[in-house]
Design a protein around this nucleic acid. Sequence first.
DNA 1: TGCCTTTGTGTAAAATTTACGCATTTTTTG
DNA 2: CAAAAAATGCGTAAATTTTACACAAAGGCA
Lengths: 256, 256
Amino acid sequence: MENHEKPNFGYIYPRPAVTTDCVIFGFDMTDELLKVLLIERGIEPFKGRYALPGGFIKIEAKTNQYGLVVEEKNESLLECAKRELKEETGFDVQNIYELGTWSTPGRDPRCITITDAYYALVTIQPVRGGDDAADAKWVPLYQVLNTIKNLPDGMRFLAFDHDEIITAAHIRLQQQLCFEPLAFKLLPKRFSMTTLQKLYEAILEKNFDRRNFARKMLDSGILDVFPTESRNINYQLNLEKYEEFKRTGRLSNLIF
Amino acid sequence: MENHEKPNFGYIYPRPAVTTDCVIFGFDMTDELLKVLLIERGIEPFKGRYALPGGFIKIEAKTNQYGLVVEEKNESLLECAKRELKEETGFDVQNIYELGTWSTPGRDPRCITITDAYYALVTIQPVRGGDDAADAKWVPLYQVLNTIKNLPDGMRFLAFDHDEIITAAHIRLQQQLCFEPLAFKLLPKRFSMTTLQKLYEAILEKNFDRRNFARKMLDSGILDVFPTESRNINYQLNLEKYEEFKRTGRLSNLIF
DNA sequence: TGCCTTTGTGTAAAATTTACGCATTTTTTG
DNA sequence: CAAAAAATGCGTAAATTTTACACAAAGGCA
């Protein structure tokens, strides 16, 4: 990382540095809050501020005896995002989606840096005894967004332009919920209807009628039903039926 | 452009080259087809093949007497996309949206290149006597997509990975149509209801009932009505009312 | 045990979507 | 130019979906 803080000596045709950043969403079933995973920065710039996990793309250049580049190997941006996530938070993320690029001149004080932002959905482990990744912290999304919204003009809460990225990620998550069964990726395999509803409410910032919500979900046919020991019922997403529903059904049936 | 074809001599910490590409959509009212603007490449690689307009991001680096970079100026990726569009096609594009990045290793035979793809919506000028931009060509989208779909495994129609980009752009356009009045940006200010319907049908690849389509559009309240000399009626998007509708109305009312 | 909360199951009214009918104007074509 | 064909404006009735709300049974808690 520190490599890139140096000016690019002797490089006549400048290229921007390229990073990835990732908004990791998790649904905390204990307090029913949608949360994001933030990292406290240990180095400048923005030392001590919270930031999205991320880092520079890895390119391995092999040079011959004359210093000429004879072979280059790079990872894709998606691979970069996954690798950085694993390194910084320990998460092996499956459900990760591209959000967009941020490239405003001056966004990184060190050098010209463009970032490709992602968002990922994980299930927060109910028992999290001591984080692997030091300084990683689950923060309620609404707290972050409110803080950002109420900031004086020109002030920022997170490092770099991560305020903008996290705001955009939330909007995207809301929209994406209309086309994909994203919510289920934030839950354990089986869940109660109430939990599912709380999650939808947390993401969309709306409240739904309990009975209408359940009917809509069940009528869509994408859920398998599992009785529990108690009177309660658990549900599980049936992926085949969901794909079928996407093809034949009215997608707007899942828009609330 | 050719600058970047050289290996980056002596640059110890390699960075990828960064480009933008853009899928320009236009609706041809003469034949009621959704079209995309393609450029025939005049240079290698992929000389003679069609490609999306685009190019490398501009960074101006000032070096001092010792060759150290003392100041860098860059454009944002969006600015880059707009500039390349203007240069290559003559279009001064207003309605342009980010699509995503493509960064698969090896996608550019010259060097490690990642591209940030955009899609733009323009009104095709009814009279286009000779294109400003040589070798720029409006091609029916369905023709391009069909060609791509029916290609033998491993074969490509457009240069680079532009097959994938154009396919993704179409899907995005379809989805975006549910949240934004995108279609109107492909039409002249005033248009007939039939034209609007044909455009929706072209984008979504579905047919609608004429009377139901018109009612849905008119009931949403986002259109202003203008009589013509003949019995026919013309319409025009009312942006204020559309914003109002986005806030208060059910967005799915505009999903077909 | 009694009270409160949560969960499962409905039902009726309102709103929306869908599927057409028909007369009139405009365009096409022999 | 006139007849046929296609396009346009204005409807209505049935089917479906959404919304609003009632009530009984099960579980948690003082």
